[in-house]
Amino acid sequence: MYAQMIKTASNSVKSRDEMSPEEAAFQDKIDNDIKIEPRDWMPEDYRRTLIRQIGQHAHSEVVGQLPEGNWITRAPTLERKMILLAKVQDEAGHGLYLYSAAETLGVSRDEMVEMLHEGRMKYSSIFNYPTLNWADIGAVGWLVDGAAIVNQVALQRTSYGPYSRAMIRICKEESFHARQGYHAIMKMAFGTPEQKKMAQDAVNRLWFPAIMMFGPNDSESTHSEQSMAWKIKVKSNDELRQQFVDQTVPQIEYLGLDLPDPGIKWNEERGHYDFSDPDWSEFFNVIKGNGPCNVDRMNARVKAWEDGQWVRDGLMEHARKRATRKVAAE
C-alpha cells in the first residue's frame, strides 16, 4: 500500500514435502502466529521480500513529506499549520522506525536511500500526485492516510516482529491524522462555496489515486501467494480496497460532496459498494516514473541528500575528533 507491487523473491510457494527441516519449522511458527524475530532463522527470500516491502514503506513516509510540505508555508491558520507540521513530523518519525525495522534484516538505511535515489527501490505511487489546493491537505489525511490505515491495521498481524510492532505504533498516529484530515475537509465542505469547490476538486482528483494505493486487482497481482503464506501480506489487494471504499463512501456523502466516481452504487446482494475500476494504465505509468510528480519528487530527495553531504560529513568528522580527544585525555 505504502508498499505496492512488491515482488516476492521466490517464484512459487513450496509444498511441505519440498521444505527443508528449517523451512518447515519456520512455516510452523508462521502458521501458529508466532512472530519471527531478527535473530531467528528465515528463508533468504523472506528476508529479501521484507526488505523491499519495509524499505518501500519507509521511503513512502519520507517522500510523503513533500506533497504535504508543499502547503506548510501556506496553511491558512496557525492551528492548521501546527497540525500539518506535527503530522509531517510524525511521518518522518514513521520513516525512522521503518528504516530501523528494515535494518534488523541486515541492510543499512544509507544503502536503502541509495537504492531509492538510483531508482532501484520505489515508494508509494500516491506521492507522485500533486497537492494543488488547501483541501488536498485534508484529503491526503482523510483518504491517503485512511487507505494506509486499512492496509496497516491488517499488517499489525504481519509475521515479522519488528514490522508488526512498527505498524501498531504507526496506526495509532495514522488514525489521528485521518480524523484531522476529515475535520479539515469538513470545515471546507460546510464552508463558503469556494471552499466547497476546493474540497470537491480534491476528492475528485485524489479518489482514484487513493484506491490505486492498494495495488492491482488480485487477478493481476502475481506475487501475492508466497507473501500470504508467509503472512507478510495478510489480506488481498481487492479485499482491502473494498473495505476502504465501503468505509469512505458514506463519509463523502456526509460531506454533501458529489461522489468522485459515477460507478459507486450500493450493491444489496454483495453487501458492499460497487465502484469503477481505476485506469490501471495510469497506475503502471506512475509506477514506471511517468506520474505528474515523479521526477520532481526524486530530484528534491536527491538534492536534499547531495546538498546535505557536507553537513553529514562535518558532523561525523566532529564526532571522530571528539572521540580522539576523549581518548587522548584519558
Binding site: G69, I72, Q89, L96, A304, D307, Q309
Partner: peptide
C-alpha cells in the same frame, strides 16, 4: 518550516 522534507538527514527533518 521551509526545510520540511529537504534537510540533510531524516533526524534533522
Amino acid at each position: 518550516s521551509e526545510w520540511c522534507g529537504h534537510s540533510p538527514i531524516l533526524e534533522e527533518d
